[in-house]
Each structure stands twice: as C-alpha cells, then as structure tokens.
C-alpha cells in the first residue's frame, strides 16, 4: 500500500493505492493520526487506487472518523471501486460515512473550507 497527502485549504486528502489489509492498515492509521495531530480535522480518503480493504482497513476508517468528528471535523471517502463500495454498503458503513464519486466532490462537500 502507498499513500500520498495533499492539502486544499483546510481539507487534507489522503490518496491510497494498493490493498489495505492487516499488514498495511497500521501504516494508514499512522498517516491519519499524523494529520489529526497536525490539527487537520477535515479529511478525504481517496480510495481510487484501492483494490481491496479488509476489516483492518475498515477499522482504521471508523477510528479516524470517530477522532475527526470528536474534533469538529469529518472523514469522507471518494473514488471507491464497486467491490469496496458494495462491502461498505452491506456492512452499513455508508450510513455513517459520506461517500463521493470523486475527490473534488468530497473536498467541495466541506463547503468553503476546501
């Protein structure tokens, strides 16, 4: 798994590529934790390059969402492939996580902050 980060206004996008599984989830958690520690609470996870995410990856998303919201921010997802989106829908995660087709859409959804 590889990650890169870019910032537009006060919205930080974490671009993720590869598989998010038990081996790589901790690395992703560290990226999000680092952004939250740097007071970046409006986060977008770009899943455009993610082929597969295991339960470990989903737990990272839930933990980050919880932390971001507790600090007045949010975590939004963008560019999910149909398989990953289906799993998120089936598990009910889309009832608490906002999902967008594109990174632009997700960034703009934060209003004037992007």
């Amino acid at each position: 798994m590889q990650t890169s980060v870019d910032r537009r206004g006060d919205v930080v996008t974490v671009h993720i590529a590869g598989s998010v599984d038990g081996l790589t989830a901790e690395g992703l958690q560290q990226v999000f934790t680092g952004e939250l520690a740097a007071q970046h609470h409006n986060l977008v996870a770009d899943f455009g390059g993610v082929e597969y995410t295991s339960s470990a990856g989903l737990r990272v998303l839930l933990a980050t969402l919880k932390q971001a919201r507790s600090r007045g921010g949010d975590l939004r997802l963008a560019g999910l492939n149909p398989d990953v989106l289906k799993v998120l829908e089936l598990s009910g995660f889309t009832t608490i996580l906002s999902v967008f087709d594109t990174v632009d859409g997700a960034v703009k959804s934060f209003g004037g902050r992007g």
Partner: peptide, 23 residues
C-alpha cells in the same frame, strides 16, 4: 455472506462507538 457482513459491520461500528440505525 451479505447478512454476515452486515452483522459484523454493525458490531464493528458499535466497537468504534457508533450506534447505527437498523436497516
């Protein structure tokens, strides 16, 4: 498999402190 994923998703959300509404 779909129902099992849903059930475990609900438990994972509760584990993280969320309270998902019934589907």
């Amino acid at each position: 498999a779909e129902l099992a994923i849903h059930a475990k998703g609900v438990l994972m959300m509760r584990e993280a402190g969320f309270d998902p509404a019934p589907d």
